[in-house]
């Protein structure tokens, strides 16, 4: 298990290095001179040169990359070209919003998705199953922006139960969390149902019942526990999706999260901010996959064994 962890962690570091290199070099060959955008069309060639020098942009690109990487490892992502503040600070501020939105949306999706999937599987074939799965199909096919607008119209504009947009209070987060979580909830519930149906018919479930365990102890302790692998797989990839996918919902609900920060920085060609943002998204994805891998091993002893020997 320890070897397994170390190996996966090293892999994650390697992936991050690759992503950082690709991000940096790709962004440095895209057209559009950030210094010119920053200073405007009327700036003299001399002024441009001075600024380039001050920002280290006149050095060879490999040196620039190396400096950027080592600075980043020290937690210094550079300064935004346009907003006079360090990237790390801007990212941090937006991250607070995004993390809350995505985190709660994820919890909502996970808890309700697994619950509904299990209940549907246990009621396989009857009316409860059919109703729950119709909701899931609806949730998967409905685009997030549509759900968002619908929620805004019904609960904010018509009923006045919840605020329309912004991030001031916890109530401001309710509608965005639902809007963002809906499709993830829907697909988790479907995966859970399928996995549970498969497990429910297994021999060991009959054994568990034969011991005299309560129905729900059999379903949860023996059934759900064995259905977790496919659930973790889908839920894990979604954790990455939900963070990056929050951009749209942030925009609709006027929330200053990482999403809107990224969109603005790309429009302005604010390179340090774009790079920082991409690295942030990559880091989340890599960490998520790492967690998923470790969870696999925790949940299924057979994976631990083969993973440990491979």
């Amino acid at each position: 298990m320890r070897d397994f962890l170390i190996r996966r962690a090293l892999q994650a570091v390697a992936v991050m290095l690759c992503i950082s290199a690709i991000t940096f070099f790709v962004l440095n060959v895209v057209p559009g001179d950030p210094v010119r955008i920053m200073l405007g069309d009327l700036a003299s060639e001399e002024a441009l040169e001075t600024v380039r020098h001050r920002m280290g942009l006149d050095q060879p690109v490999f040196v620039q990359y190396f400096n950027w990487l080592t600075n980043m490892l020290r937690g210094d992502f550079g300064d935004s070209y346009f907003q006079r503040a360090p990237v790390i600070q801007l990212l941090g501020r937006s991250l607070a919003v995004t993390a809350r939105l995505a985190g709660f949306a994820y919890l909502f999706a996970l808890i309700s998705g697994v619950t509904i999937g299990v209940v549907a599987a246990v009621n396989h074939g009857n009316a409860i199953d059919r109703i729950l799965m119709s909701i899931a199909v609806l949730g998967i096919s409905a685009p997030a922006f549509w759900v968002a607008l619908l929620l805004q119209i019904v609960f904010a504009l018509n009923l006045h139960w919840l605020p329309l947009s912004g991030t001031k209070t916890a109530a401001h987060f309710v509608l965005p969390v639902i809007a963002l979580g809906t499709r993830y909830f829907a697909s988790i519930s479907r995966v859970t149902r399928t996995a549970m149906l498969e497990v429910l018919s297994q021999d060991f479930m009959r054994t568990a019942e034969a011991k005299g365990l309560r129905k729900w102890a059999v379903i949860l302790r023996h059934g759900l526990r064995n259905a977790l692998i496919p659930i973790i797989t889908i839920a894990g990839t979604q954790l990455g999706d939900i963070f990056t996918g929050s951009i749209l919902v942030e925009t609709i609900f006027s929330m200053n999260g990482v999403g809107s920060l990224m969109v603005n920085s790309i429009n302005q060609r604010d390179l340090p901010l774009i790079e920082g943002g991409v690295m942030y998204i990559a880091l989340i994805c890599v960490v998520v996959y790492l967690i998923v891998d470790v969870l696999y091993a925790v949940v299924d002893p057979r994976i631990r064994l083969s993973g440990g020997e491979a």
Partner: peptide
């Protein structure tokens, strides 16, 4: 009760 298939009659993750 014990069942026919010892391979699948025990919970693999417990």
């Amino acid at each position: 009760m014990i069942f026919q298939e010892p391979m699948t009659s025990l919970n693999p993750v417990m």
